[in-house]
């Protein structure tokens, strides 16, 4: 016999995940617009790997394949990994990263709902630590750099590895705006001098700033549609803004301005698509604010003082570790109780 409630009208997991995927589309479209279609190939590779690995792991774990495969969570992990690695990277890079993310970071921890770390960020971390060289081959935005590839030439390179005669890969790729900032600062340049370099646009890196804006747009949709809680992106971006703002005010020559931080690297995609992974973030409102603040501080610290140009991935993973503790600390009061008197 069934028991109540007998009715339900949930927004199912697969619909939630699908909406998150839709929300990535503006960012992806701008990515293609500014950097060419190579990213689509990476996404396809990562997505295929994600689904294949998911199916394999489900089989190995003796779990039903179809319902889990159709929840879109693996697909989302794959897409997020593809978006965080250079599109001109060798084909096996997204494959290895995604396979690791799904097999180890997700399924070895118990699969959907049980993984303590964000699988996409674990995949990224594995790649940046294991293959730092390959992870730097970012494409110069279209209409910039030393030479320009047409969309057709770009795709031909991705599939066959053949560049048009006389072109070198080095001429087509560049380090990221965050990376350049870090290197040039170490070489003694000031922030304003560095930002005069041709790779920079109005807010941050030319092209990449627009991609970040695209992700922010998708993120706003998720916020408005209440797919993600507001506390995480607001606390994270607010902290990043405040912290970088203070440092920038004190020492503008050595610290980039807040908007530069917002629109560089993985800040926007992190704020709206990575930190907001419900499985690996806190469940309480207060906890989410703490989590966002922590991730913001760590991101800034790693960007300003760390060995890696961007810090979102490591900040996420480090904060993921704190989630159980944060959840216990921030239990809200319940109806009819003054304080959490029953706790501890």
């Amino acid at each position: 016999m069934l028991s109540s409630p007998f009715i339900a009208r949930p927004l199912s997991v697969d619909r939630i995940m699908r909406r998150v995927l839709y929300a990535l589309l503006p960012g992806i479209a701008l990515y293609v617009w500014y950097f060419g279609p190579a990213i689509l190939v990476s996404i396809a590779l990562a997505a295929t790997t994600a689904l294949a690995t998911e199916a394999l792991m489900l089989k190995l774990r003796d779990r039903p394949v179809r319902p889990f495969l159709s929840d879109y969570s693996a697909l989302l992990t794959g897409v997020l990994i593809a978006l965080s690695i250079p599109p001109f990277a060798p084909w096996w890079l997204p494959v290895v990263g995604t396979a690791f993310a799904i097999a180890v970071a997700k399924h070895l921890y118990g699969g959907l709902g049980s993984n303590p770390f964000n699988p996409a960020m674990i995949g990224y971390a594995v790649l940046i630590i294991s293959f730092p060289q390959e992870m730097t081959q970012w494409i110069s935005p279209q209409g910039m750099g030393h030479s320009v590839l047409s969309y057709g030439e770009q795709l031909r390179y991705v599939f066959s590895g053949v560049l048009p005669a006389g072109m070198q890969l080095d001429a087509l790729t560049m380090s990221t705006p965050l990376d350049t900032l870090k290197t040039q600062l170490q070489l003694g340049m000031t922030v304003s001098d560095i930002r005069d370099l041709p790779i920079y646009g109005r807010l941050a890196g030319k092209g990449s700033e627009m991609v970040a804006a695209g992700f922010a747009l998708g993120g706003l949709y998720l916020l408005i549609a209440r797919i993600i809680p507001w506390q995480l992106p607001v606390a994270f971006l607010g902290t990043l803004f405040a912290l970088s703002g203070v440092f920038h005010l004190i020492d503008p020559a050595h610290y980039a301005p807040p908007l530069f931080h917002w629109f560089s690297g993985a800040a926007m995609i992190g704020a709206f698509f990575i930190l907001t992974d419900p499985i690996t973030s806190p469940t309480t409102a207060k906890g989410r604010i703490l989590f966002g603040i922590g991730a913001g501080v760590l991101t800034f610290v790693i960007r300003a003082y760390g060995g890696f140009p961007d810090g979102v991935a490591f900040a996420t993973i480090l904060m993921n570790m704190c989630v159980p503790l944060i959840d216990v600390w921030t239990q809200p009061r319940i109806f009819g109780k003054k304080k959490k008197e029953s706790k501890r």
């Binding site: 949930p10 927004l11 997991v13 939630i16 319902p67 889990f68 929840d71 969570s73 699969g111 959907l112 709902g113 049980s114 809680p229 419900p278 499985i279 973030s281 469940t283 309480t284 239990q331 809200p332 009061r333 319940i334 109806f335 009819g336």
Partner: peptide, 20 residues
């Protein structure tokens, strides 16, 4: 069929007793 909990806390947002 029930799927794993993804800790989305839609339940907590709906709970009139303000439980988790």
């Amino acid at each position: 069929p029930a799927m794993p909990c993804i800790r989305c806390t839609r339940c907590a947002q709906a709970c009139p007793a303000e439980l988790q």
